[in-house]
Design a protein around this nucleic acid. Structure first.
Lengths: 370, 370
DNA sequence: CCACACGGCGACAACGTTGTCAAGTGGTCG
DNA sequence: CGACCACTTGACAACGTTGTCGCCGTGTGG
């Protein structure tokens, strides 16, 4: 159907000629402006159809100074959490007629800077959503008057930030362990590079303190220089004089490694709650209880916020907290082996008495596909 | 450091003024052209530094007719396979100074068309990589002279296509079942909408034929109208008069569903091979043997092909086959329950004798993270 | 000493689109 | 009947960059 005259792509001029109007009128039709006679509009639309005309984004954004794409910078698309997040953004962007430019920072501050500048200054995107790496992004300041920016997953002062309640969710989870009589609760995979994980860490510490349980550094596994052998670390924690009886896995990757380690040694008696859901969590026995951090919710919140910022500059940037859910699947409800001292209030065997918001829907299909 | 004069973003003119040269000279420096005096170049570079100048992509691509981004259209980023594929593309693109525009088709032909046209005609991308949905994309023809196009995952005549050897890999897997004495081999989740799955289906059929085994339609699970209840379907296959003893899962999603179903009923005796790896395949017991279809390899091959096409138009488009590996993890090496008739050659219990290329590295961390 | 080549650089147009402004037409009101 | 208004349309400049062409000055060979 579309016929390209000569070898050039059809431009607004070709449409204008074909419809017998001026290019300005074509522009008006394309942009759905009011003041066009219905009959003229029909002629123009017909010409557009016939020629297969598509407006040139480059020229448009050159003229207007800001283009029809939004930029997204995340750690890496290879992480299904971020992939799902971008997917949510892309879906919503489509309904606004916006395209999505993705770039990854690979957790490198220099690359983050390069990518952000390329998007904001080079591509003149209509907005940016990014998962911050460096503590500050001062180089964005000159552009922020024109380009709205939203931070996701990790909070940044000065930016509207979409995050989950790391602290609160962790408190809930660890408190559940305490309520079940656990006194040796491991924090599996602390990584000081991530502020989110540090917030989870302080939730953990606060619950211990409030419960009157001593803090034992031996119960904390740390990622040093970006690496931690989950398997041997799990073995270590279980081989302590007073071994860990409950594990709080601070992120999904650690949770997967931990689950694998426990399964290799057939330990089905250790309690575990993971921060972040993962695909097989409800397949293994016992099912792995997870704090569900829904990437689609986060992505949606981020783009909605960005679109709102495009409309009106809005006031002070603030944090927007996306709710989490504690998916009870079994592993989080395992009670401590022996009541030891007389400590906690409740200490049954079945599902926990205390905390934990309801939240059913354990069987959402998410994660792996294909 | 960067100082924006007034409120405008610095343009080539500002740099030129600051360095005391003409805009053309700045352009020459930015584009690393030869004919510039070293000293002048230094002055210009310094001015660029000071002003924080970043070339405007829109103007550039308007002038040159083709921009600094490549377009990628895939089913959805929520699918970790495609997410990883895009990640590989993005990584390589970065080294070429290209950005990546992602768009999803959601397996809808109309949306595919819209997205592709937006990328090719609207954004004037430097190239397109897409996972084809509709049988044909004739609307791309007018642009193909200017914009190279590569198909991934699913083959399309007329386009360079990057695919895996669906047929061959399936033959290998099913043959392994036959060698182990299985006579009731299920094809789990046929979906006629996907040509890749149809190719796997014909591999399945051919092995049966060559082995002299009858084809039983009852052993084929079909996705109808896009849905299939994996759990009840698995139950059905296991409850047949002559139940299935081996499962070929035609895709990772089905494999996950199937694995979950088998685990719920504690069936550890059924053989299974999945087309497509998934994160927990080596955690469950028995480990799920998989045909590994590496998204990074595929993505890399696709972008390399695209970059090559940019250099030279090249001759006839062809199919490029990316190798797969059969990861032996246990479930694929389970022999048939009773030797039944005297059929196959080998029929031991331990790892298969026949087919299956070596392929170690079962423990690659892929899939879920975070 | 002159013609010419060449390295280095700048003026200007053009890419496709939209904003500004003005012009044309027909109708309405005083 | 004339002035004014609403509505529709078009001419033109401008967005920031690069390609074309030509200019200038210096050196080189005849």
């Amino acid at each position: 159907m579309p016929k390209i005259s000569g070898s050039r792509r059809p431009g607004i001029k070709d449409v204008a000629a074909s419809a017998g109007v001026s290019i300005k009128t074509v522009s008006r039709v394309v942009n759905a402006e009011e003041a066009v006679h219905p009959e003229t509009r029909a002629r123009v639309l017909h010409a557009i159809q016939v020629l297969g005309y598509v407006p040139n984004t480059a020229a448009r954004s050159l003229k207007s100074g800001t283009g029809g794409a939004i930029g997204v910078v995340i750690d890496t698309l290879a992480d299904p959490f971020f992939a799902a997040l971008v997917s949510a953004i892309e879906t919503r962007a489509l309904t606004e007629g916006l395209s999505v430019l993705v770039a990854s920072s690979n957790l490198d501050a220099a690359q983050e800077r390069e990518q952000l500048l390329s998007l904001v200054a080079g591509h003149q995107v209509a907005g940016v959503i990014f998962a911050p790496v460096a503590p500050e992004q001062p180089y964005l300041d000159p552009y922020r008057a024109v380009t709205p920016v939203v931070a996701v997953d990790r909070s940044r002062a000065g930016y509207d930030s979409i995050v989950v309640d790391d602290y609160g969710a962790t408190v809930l989870a660890v408190q559940q362990f305490v309520d079940l009589g656990h006194e040796r609760i491991a924090f599996f995979d602390r990584d000081e590079r991530f502020s989110t994980i540090e917030r989870r860490m302080s939730g953990y510490l606060d619950v211990l303190r409030d419960a009157g349980l001593p803090f034992d550094p031996e119960l904390v596994s740390e990622t040093i220089d970006g690496s931690l052998d989950y398997r041997s670390e799990a073995d270590r924690l279980l081989a302590l004089d007073r071994p860990a009886t409950a594990f709080f896995a601070s992120n999904a990757k650690a949770a997967i490694g931990l689950t694998a380690a426990l399964h290799r040694t057939h330990r089905q008696d250790t309690a575990m709650i993971a921060f972040g859901d993962f695909s097989f969590a409800d397949v293994v026995r016992p099912g792995v209880s997870c704090i569900d951090q829904d990437p689609f919710l986060i992505g949606n919140a981020a783009i909605e916020r960005l679109l709102a910022l495009r409309e009106s500059p809005s006031g002070e940037p603030r944090e927007w907290i996306v709710p989490t859910a504690l998916l009870q699947r079994g592993s989080g409800e395992i009670a401590a082996p022996l009541p030891a001292r007389a400590t906690a209030s409740a200490s049954g065997a079945a599902p926990a008495s205390g905390a934990a918001p309801a939240s059913a829907s354990t069987t959402t299909t998410r994660g792996d596909a294909r």
